[in-house]
Simulated scan of single mutants.
Amino acid sequence: MKHLLLVVTALFFLNSCASKKEVLYLQDIDTHGVGTIDYQSATIQPNDILKITVESLSPEAALPYNRSVAQGNMPRDLELMRLDGYVVSLNNTISMPVLGELSTRNKTTRELEEFISNKLISGGHLTDARVDVRLINAKVTILGEVNKPGTFTYTEQNMTLLQALGLAGDLTINGERKDILMTREVDGVRKVTHIDLTSAEFMNSEYYFIKPNDLIVVNPNNPKVKSSGFIGNVGTVATVISLVLSITILLTR
Score class of each variant (00 low, 15 high):
65 Y>P: 10
67 R>L: 05
68 S>I: 05
68 S>R: 13
70 A>Y: 14
70 A>F: 13
71 Q>D: 07
74 M>T: 15
74 M>E: 10
76 R>G: 05
77 D>T: 05
78 L>I: 15
81 M>C: 08
84 D>F: 14
86 Y>Q: 07
89 S>E: 06
89 S>H: 08
90 L>I: 14
90 L>D: 09
93 T>F: 10
94 I>Q: 01
94 I>E: 00
97 P>W: 12
97 P>R: 07
98 V>Q: 02
98 V>F: 07
99 L>Q: 09
100 G>E: 12
105 R>N: 01
105 R>P: 02
106 N>Q: 06
108 T>Q: 04
108 T>C: 09
110 R>I: 15
113 E>W: 13
113 E>L: 05
114 E>R: 08
114 E>C: 09
115 F>K: 07
115 F>S: 07
116 I>P: 02
117 S>N: 08
117 S>E: 09
117 S>L: 06
117 S>V: 11
118 N>P: 04
118 N>K: 12
121 I>D: 09
123 G>P: 11
124 G>Q: 01
125 H>Q: 07
125 H>S: 11
125 H>K: 10
131 V>Q: 01
132 D>V: 14
133 V>R: 02
133 V>I: 02
133 V>N: 00
133 V>K: 00
134 R>K: 13
134 R>T: 15
137 N>C: 10
137 N>T: 13
138 A>C: 10
138 A>D: 03
140 V>F: 01
141 T>N: 07
141 T>S: 12
142 I>G: 00
143 L>C: 05
144 G>A: 03
144 G>Y: 06
145 E>H: 06
147 N>C: 01
148 K>W: 11
149 P>E: 00
149 P>V: 02
150 G>S: 07
151 T>R: 03
151 T>N: 02
152 F>S: 03
152 F>C: 11
153 T>L: 10
153 T>W: 10
153 T>E: 03
155 T>S: 07
156 E>R: 13
156 E>C: 06
156 E>K: 13
157 Q>E: 15
157 Q>S: 10
158 N>F: 12
160 T>K: 04
160 T>I: 05
161 L>E: 05
162 L>V: 15
162 L>Y: 14
163 Q>K: 11
166 G>S: 07
166 G>L: 03
167 L>E: 08
168 A>K: 01
169 G>T: 13
171 L>V: 04
171 L>S: 05
176 E>M: 14
176 E>P: 04
178 K>N: 13
178 K>H: 14
179 D>S: 12
179 D>E: 12
179 D>F: 15
180 I>S: 06
182 M>G: 03
183 T>I: 04
185 E>R: 06
187 D>W: 09
188 G>L: 05
188 G>P: 05
191 K>F: 10
192 V>H: 09
192 V>L: 10
194 H>S: 13
194 H>I: 12
195 I>F: 01
195 I>E: 00
197 L>Y: 09
198 T>I: 14
198 T>S: 08
200 A>G: 03
200 A>Y: 04
